Simulated assay, not measured.
Amino acid sequence: MKDVLILGGTRFVGKKLVSLLLTKGYRVTIGTRGTTPDSFDGSVKRLTLDRADFQSLEEAVGSSEWDIVYDQICYTPESASYACRLLENKAERYIVTSSQSVYDFLDKELSESDFDPYSYSVTGHGNDLSYSEGKRLVEAVLFQQAKFPVCAVRFPIILGTDDYTKRLQFHIERIRDGIPIGVPNMDARISFIDSDEAASFLVWLGDKDLQGPINACSSGSISIRELLAAIEQEVGKEAQTLEQSEEQNRSPFGIPSSWHMTNGRAEQAGYQFRSLNSWLPKLIRELCSF
């Protein structure tokens, strides 16, 4: 039986990850601020901690050791450095949730080699960083400094009925209400993954010895035009779009050019991703029925 620590784990993908690991019979500890209620009752051990405070982490971790550590809430180089210091000799395997945001917009399918964290210069501090730069530096610190095996999972935008950011609902609501949506490039292609598969992939990865960055996305991509058309079909109204709009009406998927990934490294290692078309139309249908 494996001992697993999840930093985060009380909502969205983290919550599903906990449930899947419990199903596998693992002993699961979740480390959070303790402010978000969960339904795990006595099936998990809980550590109350502040991910951004070294002393808080040190006190919570203590002398415990884990077979796998999943870090769902690492956003700054400082937090990554804390993990390197605290988990040395305490983690057999460390899997950090990273992001497609580490990549620039390139006119190609993005592969892991398009951002190299092993040679990326570590400069800047958490409060001064964008989300994308924070994730680049998280990877850079971990891969350059950690004394334990690290894998960084580069997820695209994650969707699901339980997505608390409601980015897909944003488009449904505005199309339904006839509110123009700001979309700078209707033909830009984008990657997604659904929350169930994101959690399943993390569980699968925990049993492998893969290290380094790894893309995890549904097979295939979709243009913003195609996405809006799928919503139009369900809503029964035509989307009103503008290249520029007020900030509150700008699409969360409004990218200037195509931004989509290949999942070839994970598939070569044995994981078979679902196709985007196998779940996205159904999700749109479900959300439109709410």
Rank of each mutant, 00 (worst) to 15 (best):
Y164N: 07
L5Q: 05
M1G: 08
S289K: 11
R136G: 12
E234Y: 01
T123I: 11
K15F: 10
C288S: 13
T97Q: 11
R265S: 06
A216W: 00
D177S: 15
G126A: 06
V122A: 06
D209Y: 09
G236A: 10
K166P: 00
I157L: 14
S200Y: 00
I224K: 02
S101F: 03
T10H: 03
G126K: 02
K15E: 13
G8P: 00
I255W: 12
D196M: 01
F148N: 07
G14R: 03
T123F: 08
L22F: 10
L283A: 11
D38Y: 02
G178H: 01
P252C: 05
A140W: 03
G220L: 02
S101I: 05
P117Y: 01
S99R: 01
K16D: 12
F105R: 06
P180E: 09
F273S: 09
W279A: 13
S218Q: 08
S258G: 08
E112F: 10
S132Y: 04
A188H: 12
Y82F: 15
S258V: 13
V150S: 10
N89D: 14
A198L: 08
K147Q: 13
R176Y: 07
Q248R: 10
V102M: 06
G264A: 13
L168G: 13
A60Q: 00
S81V: 00
D177R: 13
C151F: 00
T123A: 14
K2G: 00
L5G: 11
H171Q: 10
V138C: 11
S81P: 00
I157Q: 12
S101N: 10
G62Y: 05
E234C: 14
L106R: 04
Y75G: 07
S64I: 00
T23D: 14
A140K: 02
K2V: 04
L227P: 09
L20F: 09
L129I: 04
